[in-house]
């Protein structure tokens, strides 16, 4: 039992954590925040242009500045979409993936300001505003992902450290067998204690925590110490040692289960925004194309 317990007691490997830490910092502030500053300057320039330029009839998407901002925003969206190709181009060497990601994040944030300037803050129940709403959903989900990545990556490193989901499950399964091994020739009260406390007699078949319960951190049930103590008191003296050992094994299994579900929760938080980010961004491209088409038909 001790040997099993030692196997799952992982501590974050300092070297790994440091490497992740540096990745996390540099993807947002790659090369001293080059892309942050470039996009900030671009946004400030566009805002200044918007304020300085007073077109006849007031600002709108159809003025010279409006067209300029619209063109810039369209180019920006196409560049952001290109990241989906770039991140799969493993042999690209002209740019670093980290630099592209940094540009991707900050350009996306910048667009959420540039596009309203393009439309002169005119919004309505039409497909033009739909394109903006879709873009904001994409940006918001991207920001959610970026925040999760910066906040959760160190936790992932601490939690995993080699303890993959499969290994954790395997260890839980081994503990379950040890527990089952203890039940031979035990009293009924011993079995009652086990059935009450062991939340996953066979983790591979009986335990169904579910992704959403993992996200809500309700996948592993909690027990009151007094209840367990009462059940332990009912166990005959002959089975006492075995019962204490079983409770300890189950407690160990709970720790493993909590670690596993927390890993699942963190990994899910790191990925789940992509299920919004990617489909909506593709829909956005079509919405923008229709927006441009309709505007120029009626222009």
């Amino acid at each position: 039992m001790n040997g099993v317990a030692q196997n799952v007691e992982h501590k974050p490997e300092r070297a790994n954590a440091t490497r992740l830490e540096s990745v996390r910092e540099t993807f947002l502030f790659y090369k001293n925040g080059r892309w942050f500053w470039i996009n900030l300057c671009a946004v400030l320039l566009f805002i200044a242009l918007y304020i300085a330029f007073e077109p006849v009839g007031g600002n709108n998407g159809g003025t010279a500045v409006g067209y300029g901002l619209g063109g810039a925003a369209t180019a920006g969206i196409l560049y952001l979409m290109w990241y989906g190709i770039r991140k799969r181009s493993y042999h690209a060497s002209a740019t670093t993936l980290q630099g592209c990601l940094s540009a991707h994040v900050w350009l996306g944030v910048a667009l959420s300001i540039i596009v309203p300037l393009h439309s002169a803050f005119q919004f309505g129940a039409n497909i033009h505003t739909l394109a903006y709403v879709l873009m904001m959903i994409v940006v918001a989900s991207g920001v959610f992902g970026a925040i999760n990545y910066t906040n959760l990556a160190p936790l992932i490193a601490a939690h995993r450290g080699g303890g993959h989901t499969q290994q954790l499950l395997e260890q839980m399964e081994r503990l379950s067998r040890e527990i089952a091994n203890l039940t031979h020739d035990r009293s009924d009260s011993f079995i009652v204690l086990m059935k009450r406390y062991d939340f996953a007699p066979n983790p591979l078949t009986d335990w169904q925590p579910g992704l959403w319960r993992c996200l809500r951190r309700t996948a592993v049930p909690t027990f009151s110490a007094s209840e367990i103590t009462n059940l332990l008191a009912n166990v005959p003296i002959a089975d006492n040692d075995a019962a204490v050992k079983m409770v300890a094994l189950i407690a160990r299994k709970r720790e493993l289960a909590i670690r596993l579900t927390e890993d699942v929760r963190l990994l899910t938080m790191l990925k789940i925004w992509l299920w919004v980010h990617v489909p909506v961004s593709l829909a956005l491209v079509f919405a923008v194309a229709l927006h441009i088409l309709i505007v120029f038909i009626y222009r």
Partner: peptide, 24 residues
Amino acid sequence: ASAFSVAKNLPSIRVLSWIGIILV
């Protein structure tokens, strides 16, 4: 182990993308 992955619990991104495009 794979049952815990996001991909196993959600429709595929490809399908969702097509639904979004068709709706737009």
